[in-house]
């Protein structure tokens, strides 16, 4: 049992680099298929959570009504994810006898949504609430309607916080979707639980490496999206002055020269 660390790492590398582990075979589902399944659970749950939490957070932040919902969602975080997953599975899967996948998929997605809603909701709400009251006052004082204030001012200013909520939700989803393989479902967790059951530790650790890699990659993608979506005026990454001045976009403003004189 007591294998040296170096050997295990070598075995994991061997497991990960074996092309036959990546594609499906008659007996085994390959890494690519499980990766896609994993991404599918997470994407589905994230989209549903966004559809719920984003409008709700914007509404609560803008109107300052229903704050208790944010507190209630935060209390959900105390629920043990695995426990809720098992409970929902035991309740729901018997309704789908024969179509086993659906019976396990629904509880999994519900648990993932429950997990992703609180951070998105709380951050969206906090983002809108934290908008400088002076900015909000100026916006409506200039004649913006309520929805214009929300979508042209509050939402863009809240984006950094909203993004951090979405990123934190995505990370928790990827981590927890692993637990879905505790049920007879696909996903990268399959390698971890199968490896454990078969005492095939290179497979188990290789699964862990894959989950970690997916999480890091997802965060990187979301961080990149955030960079392009959030205004530079908020992130403070201003255009370099030297490149900004000869910028051709300034050429459409001929007044520039007049003002200097």
């Amino acid at each position: 049992m007591a294998t040296g660390g170096g050997d295990v790492i070598g075995d994991v590398v061997t497991w990960l680099t074996d092309p036959s582990h990546w594609t499906d075979t008659r007996f085994d589902t390959g890494i690519i298929t499980q990766l896609l399944a994993h991404v599918r659970f997470c994407a589905m749950a994230l989209l549903i959570a966004l559809a719920i939490a984003l409008p709700l957070g914007l509404f609560i932040g803008h109107t300052d009504r229903g704050r208790w919902l944010v507190a209630a969602a935060n209390a959900l975080r105390a629920l043990p994810t695995v426990g809720v997953l098992v409970l929902l599975t035991v309740i729901i899967s018997p309704q789908f006898q024969g179509r086993t996948d659906t019976g396990f998929l629904i509880p999994t997605v519900i648990v993932l949504v429950l997990l992703a809603v609180p951070p998105i909701l709380a951050n969206t709400f906090a983002g809108v609430q934290n908008v400088d009251p002076g900015v909000r006052d100026a916006a409506s004082g200039m004649g913006m309607t309520g929805s214009q204030v929300l979508f042209r001012v509050e939402l863009p200013i809240s984006l950094p916080l909203i993004f951090s909520g979405v990123r934190s939700a995505a990370l928790q989803l990827i981590a927890t979707a692993t637990v879905a393989s505790y049920l007879p479902l696909g996903g990268l967790g399959r390698f971890i639980y199968d490896g454990l059951a078969q005492q095939d530790y290179p497979q188990m650790i290789g699964g862990g490496v894959l989950v970690a890699a997916l999480a890091l990659l997802t965060d990187l993608v979301l961080a990149t999206v955030q960079r392009y979506v959030v205004s530079r005026g908020i992130t403070g990454r201003y255009a370099n002055e030297r490149t900004a001045v000869p910028d051709s976009r300034l050429a459409v403003l001929p007044e520039a020269e007049v003002a200097r004189g």
């Binding site: 002076g134 100026a138 200039m142 005026g233």
Partner: peptide, 24 residues
């Protein structure tokens, strides 16, 4: 209200500029 306000210039203490918009 929004039409009334668009006809009236409004300047406040800390300017209340929109941080995500350029000056222009």
């Amino acid at each position: 209200t929004h039409e009334l306000r668009r006809r009236i210039g409004y300047v406040i203490q800390h300017a209340g500029l929109f941080p995500h918009k350029t000056i222009v």
